[in-house]
């Protein structure tokens, strides 16, 4: 089977981690890194790997459109609005890892199949990628009236973008809990913990289910199936302790250890974003190859 060509915009931490992951992909061939600073570590590394490197961002791709079919945007919400426009004109499928959220929210374990042909999909937030699968799993067993998540990440893994606009995390994640997770009402909280050595990403999910719909066994089974599903693309994703049931309330505790590709293992919050993006792109690629084979 052939591969589908991929490119990354943004050569920072996220872009660099994507680079490591994409080099291992069996369905995607990473060809291009689009940055703005040719001397940056990520750009230098991309050169060393033999990738085509553009230091004028997506404009480089506009001049060489055959290099890439699927684009990952690891820049910022502001830059993404421009990048998305260019990608659309070029007819390139876009995975948006910024908070811009132009396209539909995607969580690979929940709603990827509905968005295989979308020209632009958004990966929500790290907390969303970690917790929305669980809200969805609970919602399949018992209707979720209210879903609340608390994401605790190590201070070191919270980049300047997250820090400068922390409301984006809480607001976008809450929306994702409702739109993708299926909760009637969503709420999200994020905590930064500066402890050294850095803590692993932890997420707590509280769900209040509809009166009379609580079915512990069904919820447990659904949550455990979902954890295995997410583990298929985020191996460090696990339940920390047994879920707690209390009246109509279910509480699930998660820990996410990163793969340690480019980013340290404690940065499970960043790893789950890049892993989810690569997983989504691989499914897009498989779908394209299947369509091409059937022609």
């Amino acid at each position: 089977m052939g591969k589908v060509k991929a490119g990354i915009i943004g050569s920072g931490n996220i872009g660099s981690d994507l680079m490591v992951k994409l080099m291992k992909s069996e369905t995607l061939e990473l060809t291009t890194m689009m940055g703005i600073d040719a001397s940056s570590r990520g750009m230098q590394h991309a050169k060393k790997l033999g990738l085509t490197v553009f230091d004028n961002g997506i404009e480089g791709l506009a001049e060489n459109p055959d290099l890439v079919d699927i684009v990952f945007d690891a820049t910022s919400a502001g830059a993404h609005i421009h990048n998305a426009g260019v990608a659309k004109e070029l007819g390139k499928q876009m995975l948006d890892l910024t908070p811009a959220a132009i396209g539909p929210f995607v969580v690979p374990a929940v709603n990827l199949h509905e968005n295989l042909h979308a020209e632009n999909v958004n990966l929500i937030t790290c907390g969303g990628q970690a917790t929305i699968p669980i809200i969805h799993a609970i919602n399949q067993a018992a209707k979720v009236e209210y879903g609340e998540i608390i994401a605790t990440i190590s201070s070191r893994s919270a980049g300047p973008g997250t820090r400068a606009n922390i409301d984006e995390f809480t607001e976008t994640t809450a929306k994702g809990i409702e739109q993708v997770g299926g909760a009637k009402k969503g709420k999200a909280i994020i905590i930064l913990n500066p402890a050294e050595p850095p803590i692993m990403m932890r997420d707590t999910i509280h769900a209040i289910v509809e009166e009379g719909s609580m079915d512990r066994e069904e919820i447990m089974a659904s949550v455990q199936r979902m954890v295995r599903h997410v583990q298929s693309y985020v191996p460090g994703y696990k339940l920390r302790t047994e879920p707690i049931f209390d009246g109509n309330n279910v509480t699930v505790f998660l820990e996410i250890e990163g793969a340690g590709h480019y980013l340290p293992k404690y940065a499970g919050n960043l790893d789950i974003m890049t892993s989810a993006a690569v997983k989504a792109a691989e499914e897009f690629a498989k779908n394209r190859l299947k369509v091409a084979a059937n022609k």
Binding site: I150, T152, I191, N193, T204, T241, T251, F253
Partner: peptide
């Protein structure tokens, strides 16, 4: 001991369970 910060109330259950 675990240097838990303000707002991490969910860690109380976690630590108690451990």
């Amino acid at each position: 001991k675990q240097k838990i910060v303000g707002g991490q109330e969910d860690m109380i259950i976690d630590v108690a369970a451990e």
